[in-house]
Simulated scan of single mutants.
Amino acid sequence: MQTTFLDGLGPVAAVIRSIGVRHDGAHQLVTDGLYLDLRWALRNPADDPALRYATGLDAGVYAHVLATPGARELIVRTAVQLQALAEEVPAGRLVRLTVACQGGRHRSVAVAEAVARRLWSAWGGEYGVEVEHHHVDHPVLPAAV
């Protein structure tokens, strides 16, 4: 697992996790909060041989995912929903978002990072955001049947 921290003046207020739903135990990581499944919403960078073995943390994959029609709007809407949820939970409680795709290396990683940056920016750096990438280091999965 790899973790990204966007530090804030206050405590971490949101945890965003990326997962690959085809990995054993992935569904056990979905515990509470919002759930976003990208398998049918965004094109899969793993279908491009030049991007297959990279991850959403790499600039080329990140740009590819964000260039998918509708991706930026999806990121904005998700960040707004997460921010609204954060306003409703008691102080000191974390809001959570799980972003899923097939293998957890490309789409979910890029979108989790983009939502985290947008949320952190909307909070003006007042609160921290933690991003957990649970399957980014796992091998690329064979194509789904």
Rank of each mutant, 00 (worst) to 15 (best):
L36M: 04
A67S: 15
G8R: 10
P45M: 04
D37C: 05
V15T: 10
Y53E: 13
G33W: 03
V61D: 06
D47E: 13
L34F: 01
D7I: 09
A59E: 15
L9Y: 08
L6Y: 15
D48F: 03
V65R: 07
D47N: 10
D32Y: 00
L34W: 01
P69D: 09
T4Q: 14
V21E: 04
N44H: 05
T31E: 15
R22N: 07
G25F: 01
T31P: 07
D48C: 04
Y62E: 13
A13V: 08
V15Q: 12
P69W: 01
H27P: 03
L29V: 01
T68G: 11
W40R: 13
L6T: 03
H27C: 08
A54N: 07
S18G: 12
I19T: 14
T55N: 05
H23V: 10
Y53A: 06
V61F: 05
H27W: 09
P11W: 13
V12F: 11
W40G: 14
L36G: 06
L42W: 00
I19D: 07
P45Y: 10
G60A: 15
D7V: 09
H64E: 06
T68E: 15
A63V: 11
T55H: 04
D24T: 10
D7G: 09
G56W: 11
F5N: 09
T55Q: 04
G25K: 05
D7R: 14
A50M: 04
G10L: 14
W40S: 14
R39P: 08
A13N: 02
G56P: 09
V61I: 10
R43N: 12
L6D: 08
Y53Q: 12
A26K: 04
L42V: 00
V65C: 07
P69T: 10
P11L: 14
S18P: 11
G8F: 11
P69S: 08
Y53R: 06
T68M: 10
V15W: 03
H64T: 00
